[in-house]
Design a binder for these strands. Structure first.
Lengths: 246, 246
DNA sequence: ATGCCCAATTAATCATACCTTTTGGCCTCG
DNA sequence: CGAGGCCAAAAGGTATGATTAATTGGGCAT
């Protein structure tokens, strides 16, 4: 042995050795296994991961572009402080969601969502295509059906479809790029059993209001209804995390 | 010369050949020089950039992690569709800001900012340290001074310092990671001469309101005042963009 | 004639040998 | 005795040779 990780899952191998090293090493760093400023030599990493320089170097280069490490001549690979990390990089988010600070990250993402989604709803009311309006109302209907039957996974899927469609319908590419984050927040909430067995009818009604306002082309109403949704959701999460905190 | 770019500025070379190739090639792709689905062979890129495979490969690997390209055996390097791009990656943003769709991107970022900053202001009212409150009021004073004297660069610096401090004071790392984006929007507005020679006193007063609300620990007031600031700013940008566009 | 399978070709991937740069210590000169 | 410059070692950067995997085209069988 002597290796930190047998770079091992099959799809990782088929995707290339460097991808395996990148994933393993990135997860290690984001988990805080090395203190900021810690220095590693490439030779060390070769031995530990059992691959050659090129592979290590390619992984290091990607990690460097994520701000996780810096590489300097005559020094080695230095672990960067968290403030330098590229927190919006999908891989960084994935590693952190799989790691220890999952709860803290979901909380941060929740606040971000609180700001972004109402704006997206307002923009969607101005830019949504008829097709997208149809998808929104369809998602609401799915939510109503599976909410009544208590099928939480199906409810979650419909919920994600609703928010994804809405962000895309905003016509703003930056907002659209946040769909995966929002989906992670929604999935995380279900995964943490913060959902009642039968979702509140009020929440579904609010989603219907958003869909209706978007279809009617009423930005102010859409924004207001979406703000209600996301603030209620965050209130529920905060209440579950620290019951004594207002 | 048969090269697309003499990988050339001195600081790029001192930062490593791969960094030069990455920057040149990334800028090419984001500028739309290649249609999505276009395939390039590594050998081609070697010849064109005048460097060897390792260098190209490391650049390609980073571009792949940004979602700009995909690399498959026996096929080559395929230009990815825009929907796969990592729009929040700082380098992608930089390339696009330096390129043709600068205006469109600034508009998207403006909407994002409209959602994010009020939330950050509300959180800052709950989490800001006394030191951060001092920096906020200091920045407002600088804005007032340089606004009256008509020193736009100094006014911009103070404005950026204000928003940077506020986002950091939110205590939310994801919001804090957006400081560079906000700074780019503010700088872009000045660069496009969308600022009057003497900034409106009303804008400065609103910033003072935010600082005061944060210091007083009043989230609702801070959020409201910040919303006024950013909606007014976006209104100005939209008004300037729509009437005349060369 | 069409469909499936095998082999040959081709291009990315991995490994290794060489080069460049940096830094710290030591020697010399003032 | 101190300061400055030079030299050498160490470690990352670059280039090239070996390897593997995937695609395509042709041939054979149905």
């Amino acid at each position: 042995m002597g290796r930190w990780a047998t770079v091992g899952t099959k799809d990782q191998i088929s995707a290339g050795l460097h991808a395996g090293v990148l994933d393993a090493f990135g997860a290690l760093i984001t988990s805080g296994a090395f203190p900021p400023g810690h220095v590693l030599r490439i030779e060390q990493l070769e031995d530990r991961f059992g691959v050659s320089r090129s592979v290590i170097r390619e992984a290091i280069r990607v990690l460097e572009s994520m701000g996780l490490v810096t590489s300097r001549r005559r020094v080695g690979v230095t672990i960067a402080p968290r403030t330098a990390w590229n927190l919006f990089d999908p891989r960084v988010i994935r590693w952190r969601l799989d790691g220890d600070d999952r709860d803290e990250l979901l909380s941060s993402l929740g606040h971000l969502r609180r700001g972004v989604e109402p704006v997206a709803a307002g923009l969607a009311a101005r830019h949504a295509t008829p097709e997208q309006c149809g998808m929104l109302t369809g998602a609401v209907m799915q939510m109503a059906v599976h909410g009544r039957s208590g099928d939480l996974p199906a409810y979650l899927a419909a919920d994600i479809a609703f928010h994804r469609t809405l962000l895309e319908a905003s016509g703003n590419e930056m907002l659209g790029a946040l769909t995966d984050l929002v989906a992670e927040v929604l999935a995380g909430r279900t995964h943490h059993h913060l959902m009642p067995a039968h979702p509140e009818p009020a929440a579904i009604r609010r989603h219907a209001e958003v869909a209706q306002a978007v279809q009617a082309g009423d930005p102010a109403a859409a924004e207001r209804a979406m703000r209600d949704i996301v603030e209620e959701a965050n209130r529920a999460i905060l209440a579950a995390q620290s019951p004594s905190d207002p």
